[in-house]
Design a protein around this nucleic acid. Sequence first.
DNA 1: TACTAATTTTGTAATGATTTTAAAAATGTT
DNA 2: AACATTTTTAAAATCATTACAAAATTAGTA
Lengths: 144, 144
Amino acid sequence: MNIDNTTMIRMLHDSKIRPSVHRLAVLDYVANSGTHPTADDIYAEISKDYPAVSRTTVYNSLHTLVDGGILKELEIDNGSAHYDFARQSPHSHFKCRNCGRIFDMALPAGIAEVVSPGFRVDAAELCFAGACPECIDRNKNSNN
Amino acid sequence: MNIDNTTMIRMLHDSKIRPSVHRLAVLDYVANSGTHPTADDIYAEISKDYPAVSRTTVYNSLHTLVDGGILKELEIDNGSAHYDFARQSPHSHFKCRNCGRIFDMALPAGIAEVVSPGFRVDAAELCFAGACPECIDRNKNSNN
DNA sequence: TACTAATTTTGTAATGATTTTAAAAATGTT
DNA sequence: AACATTTTTAAAATCATTACAAAATTAGTA
């Protein structure tokens, strides 16, 4: 389930994007962390390995990777954008309003085929919001 | 299909929100304009009738109305938040990436029932993106 | 290897949307 | 009218993102 370095480099190459160290670090984190990080999450993470990296580089890398179709920008909350690895089976998202985490969920069968006549659908984002099992449980056991 | 003043005042009253002139103007525009305006769209519009209104008041009113469950904040693009009247039959949205307009679309049957086991779903937002009929047509007839 | 061009990265400043804050204005209550 | 509460204002602060120009790095080539 993890995307290795060789694969990442090939992907960048296919999209005519130079496999710079920073871009690979950004892609690696988005594709393999299992989270759906924001630009700032990514910056915080790769700063550990590359202390000199700048926030602008993270933004640049993200834009380049999105343009190349390797990453996808999720429009899930009005605050900051979240990023997801683009090449995986279609899925929807669930945002826990309590802990803020974003989970992958199965995409209901047939949804991708739902198209309004006359419109050209390039993308569909289905996002549920509510409480995840952990948070439901935590609330149940607390008196807050 | 239009929500009249009496109804709006009753709705605010039910949510224990004082029906101030500005709040009514904000609600009226969101509920009855047919657009899915941003805070700034609303500010521009009601400035015509109330030139002294401040942007902060628009934000305050929107937050109050969302908290009261009368309006809904759409998480449709990463830029600014769009607002929609909450009390209408469930529907999805289509965002034209060309002209930027947001259209209401029928909600595919059964979608509201799709719940992942263990999660509590409070809201679902299904948003398509692509090109609307007008924009498809405009592109077809132009050489840009 | 050295030279030159192209690309990537950096750091700072600018922008746009939203929030904070404290004071002023309006409204409701007695 | 007098007082308390709520709403509105205006200005400053914050947060995410973009713009920009210079510096550093990388490729292609003589």
